[in-house]
């Protein structure tokens, strides 16, 4: 849209429909795009190369002979399928948990009046910026005291609550007209029915956005699994991958196969629900 005056100038002055500045924009964006894609391409390429092929032709994109054995070997050397299942389990539980607790609390903050509501909400706002790294040590002590170290519960439980999620959903619920609920109240609907039959169905986009945002965070989390999980069979993908790196004495072909495996689910999720990923990010960036 900023380019419009130049286009006007072009049509009156020159005959070329595409301006130089636009060509430059395409060139720069394409160059940047290539830089974004190359590490992925080379990673996937390396994952299909044999060890000697990778050693003698490290810069070739296309393998001289394609091989699946790296992928087989990854599963043979470490329980990678368990890493997958563990990550799926923890991600699903945390995401669902955050959605439920945040939506319930957001409804209370947005629609119900009770003493201390604004005070509590300010408390939530105040802690929104506090990083989890600061609460890590006491959380570890608490989990140790509860006997939950080296269990998936130690990763899921702290993730069940999100001040940010509550804030985001509250803001969304406030945009839903109250008249809808007033009509339902006259029909004798209680709070739970109004919440579940009016507010929730209307909030699907907001719930999806928050859900995807939380899912991405939990799936890619590294610090908490590293602190709380010891047993090999309980590891998540990120943790398993980082430890596998040390175990295989950097056989890049194997490591790149494992890396590819760990990225693929998130990339597929992103490509199929792109809108929600992008909206989630845009919202987190514009809060405040």
């Amino acid at each position: 849209m900023i380019l419009e005056p130049i286009n006007v100038a072009n049509t009156t002055g020159k005959k070329k429909p595409i301006s130089w500045s636009k060509l430059c924009a395409y060139a720069i964006l394409s160059l940047g795009g290539i830089i974004m894609v190359i590490p992925f391409l080379w990673t996937v390429a390396a994952s299909f190369k044999t060890y000697s092929d990778l050693f003698y032709n490290p810069y070739r994109l296309i393998p001289t002979e394609w091989t699946w054995t790296n992928y087989v070997d990854v599963f043979r050397q470490v329980p990678f399928h368990l890493y997958f299942l563990n990550t799926i389990k923890i991600t699903a539980a945390s995401t669902l948990g955050v959605l439920v607790t945040s939506a319930l609390a957001a409804y209370a903050f947005a629609r119900l009046e009770f003493p201390g509501r604004d005070f509590l909400f300010m408390g939530y706002l105040a802690t929104m910026m506090i990083p989890r790294q600061i609460t890590l040590v006491p959380t570890f002590v608490l989990m140790r005291w509860l006997g939950l170290l080296d269990t998936h519960a130690s990763l899921i439980l702290p993730g069940l609550f999100s001040a940010y999620g509550t804030f985001l959903l509250r803001q969304f619920f406030l945009t839903i007209p109250t008249e809808l609920e007033e009509a339902a109240t006259i029909d004798g609907c209680g709070y739970i029915r109004r919440f579940s039959t009016i507010i929730l169905p209307l909030s699907k986009p907001a719930l999806a956005t928050l859900g995807i945002f939380i899912m991405m965070q939990v799936w890619n989390d590294f610090l908490y699994p590293m602190v709380f999980i010891q047993s090999d069979e309980l590891r998540t993908l990120t943790l398993g991958l980082s430890i596998f790196r040390g175990d295989v004495d950097i056989q890049w072909n194997l490591l790149m196969a494992a890396t590819t495996l760990s990225i693929v689910p998130m990339v597929i999720a992103f490509l199929s629900a792109q809108r929600f990923f992008v909206e989630g990010i845009a919202l987190t960036g514009l809060k405040g």
């Binding site: 439920v100 607790t101 319930l104 409804y107 209370a108 009046e113 509590l120 506090i130 006491p138 702290p158």
Partner: peptide, 24 residues
Amino acid sequence: ETIAGYLFLAPNMVGFLVFMVFPL
């Protein structure tokens, strides 16, 4: 409404107290 408010808030509030206020 007050009781409902606290009940709706409770699951999140437990998490907030245990995993935010207590660790801080």
